[in-house]
Design a binder for these strands. Structure first.
Lengths: 158, 158
DNA sequence: TCAATACCTGACTAAATTAATCGGGATTAT
DNA sequence: ATAATCCCGATTAATTTAGTCAGGTATTGA
């Protein structure tokens, strides 16, 4: 399990789809604009997401992507896994027995941790994330929106 | 919060120290051998770990590294944070208000997730990881150790 | 003292990954 | 037909990861 900006992009994009698919398929161009991710990079990511059957594509004008399943049946772990091919195949790859303790010990410890994180992430669904946010939006609705140039949103990682 | 092999190396190395420091300071050369991490890379990592006050160094012959605090007062999140400088400073960096919903929404959602993971990892201490493993070792003690050349532990990432 | 041990630092390099780009398709609503 | 959209693979640039190297500095046993 890896946790990088790549996975972040994927989760972000999936959330964008989840939030907008009521109005029909969501285009990559739209996601690109809203989330500031380059179109071609999105194409790469959605290629993988589609092959992992997390989204479905509709071609032609008015086409785009929809979630392949309801939002609360898609968890974060599988999104990350789809785009972030697993590292592992580490030194002792589960083969060596506990002979050389020092080594295997820490190794097992890490892989335990790793699966724990995975389990944790696989219990968070897109649906839950959205729900959580919608509560927050209510509180936010009071605050007056401050007008500012888009370009002031500076430091972009991409 | 990022989760890469770099952080894994750091956690692994810290565990090695935790497990061996009863016999005095633990040398990088020893960790390097046992965990198969290059010495110079370890030097880089431990430089950061020391600056983050997670370990203390003892110089001179017989020197090495010790944990700066008891193992159950060091959590996994801070180890990773020490070596894996945070990414962030993302597009809207918390500055933009909820005006352009689509964008900020998914963004907030992700950062929520991110802090949740962080909270989770900061509740796992080295001490706990060791304890957990020691239970496992008992079960393992029965199995006969299979002799095999070290070189058969193949696929190394480094 | 002095030599061995071990940390410390910074600059450098190689490999891998991430992010982006490009140039072409294929599909389909209009 | 045409334009909007997905689809695909090759290529590239930037960044990060992992490792190397060359020179330190501090400590201490003999």
């Amino acid at each position: 399990m890896r946790l990088t900006t790549k996975g972040r992009f994927a989760v972000t994009a999936m959330l964008d789809v989840a939030l907008r698919q009521t109005g029909g398929p969501v285009t990559l161009a739209g996601i690109s604009e809203r989330q500031h991710i380059s179109l071609s990079y999105l194409e790469q990511l959605f290629g993988k997401l589609r092959r992992s059957e997390l989204v479905e594509s509709v071609r032609g004008p008015g086409g785009g992507y929809c979630l392949a399943r309801p939002a609360n049946e898609i968890n974060v772990a599988e999104i990350i896994k789809a785009v972030d091919e697993p590292i592992d195949a580490t030194q002792c790859g589960g083969k060596e027995n506990c002979r050389d303790e020092g080594r295997c010990m820490t190794h097992d410890l890490w892989s335990d941790l790793s699966t724990t994180i995975h389990d944790y992430l696989s219990n968070i669904t897109l649906g839950e994330l959205i729900e959580k946010q919608q509560k927050k939006l209510k509180r936010c609705a009071d605050k007056p929106g401050i007008l500012q140039d888009k370009r002031t949103s500076h430091i972009s990682t991409h």
